Amino acid sequence: MTLQELRERQSWSLEQKIDHSLGTIEAFVSRMGGVDKVYVAFSGGKDSTVLLDLCHKVYPNILAVFCNTGNEYPDIVRFVRQKIAAGENIQIIRPKMTPREVWAKYGFPLVSKESSEHIHDIRINPQSKTARRKLTGDFSLPIKWRYLIYEPYDTTHYCCKILKKNPSHDYQKQSGRFQIIGTMASESQLREKSYIRYGGCNVFGKRPTSRPLSIWCDEDIWTYIRRFDISIADIYYKGAKRTGCMGCGFGAQFTGDPRFRTLLREYPKCYDMVMNYTNNGVTFREALRKVLAVNKLYLPDEQPPTLFDEFNTKAI
């Protein structure tokens, strides 16, 4: 598989992508030994909702598994429970630790998974070859985030592993089932490289996995939702662009990212809860405030007034 081949597939029509995904699902289920040997990793987000709908086209009662991390938007949990109440075959699993416990023990999820891993490795053993590579290599930690190495709190990339990946791996071991997931190569360079390296949507080996949406793009997901009138979680209509963990700091430093504005507006108690998580006596609010300040941004409840605000006040 090459990047050019991936780009060609990403340029297919939605009809071609649907056919490809259905074929991918059927091939994986057959290879694994039947529908009782697989499950759909269902996050409650729009991508996995489309994936589940595709799977239902060929296996109407296929099992879906939702991991309730304790850091999900209330809309997501409500959406999943509505599907269960409607008779869909969904099982709920949970991690062994709460988000509060993970952040207290391992640190805050800040900047990105890659950067937080670099920070962690440098802090653990600053004289190691790994640390030097992550400070001077081609993919080294950006200079503007190096202050995090010396902060009194820890920065972690362990959140996803402990809250999402570990429960899924434990479930697979206990159930003997293999997962079908809704990741897309277009979401990141890492997933793009993974698709090319494994040569397609189905991965067979030590840990078989099916990724039927690999060649889809975000616009395909929305087109599918509109064309087939698919119900999705309400949080998408309240301003959320993505529905990962509601308190995650990865990517929050980008201008225009709405996650914490949305969380504060829709669920102020959840916002306050997340902001008061601590590590080494420091709150997430304090740590996130400094990250945002690097790009001259503010937390939504700390945004200083502007001339536009003053104009609106006078108009009222």
Rank of each mutant, 00 (worst) to 15 (best):
Q4H: 06
L6M: 07
R7A: 05
S13V: 14
K17D: 04
I18R: 01
G33I: 09
G45V: 07
K46D: 02
L63K: 09
L63E: 08
T69K: 03
Y73A: 05
D75S: 09
I76Q: 02
V77L: 06
F79N: 06
Q82N: 11
A85Y: 06
A86M: 06
I93D: 07
K96C: 12
T98D: 05
P99K: 06
R100L: 10
E101T: 10
V102E: 00
Y106G: 01
G107H: 01
S115V: 00
S116L: 05
I119Q: 01
K129C: 07
T130Q: 06
R133W: 06
K134A: 03
G137F: 11
Y153N: 03
K161H: 12
K161M: 10
K161G: 07
I162W: 02
L163Y: 03
K165S: 09
H169K: 15
D170N: 14
Q174A: 12
S175P: 07
G176R: 14
R177D: 10
R177A: 09
I180P: 01
I181C: 02
S188M: 01
R191I: 01
K193S: 03
I196E: 01
V203E: 02
G205I: 05
P208L: 13
P208T: 12
C217F: 06
D220C: 05
I221A: 11
R226L: 13
F228N: 10
A233N: 13
G239Q: 14
G239N: 13
A240H: 15
K241Q: 11
T243F: 04
T243H: 06
C248L: 08
F254W: 11
T262D: 08
L264I: 14
P268M: 12
M273V: 15
Y277M: 15
Y277T: 09
R285V: 15
L292E: 06
V294F: 08
K296D: 09
L299E: 07
L299H: 06
L307S: 07
E310M: 09
N312L: 10
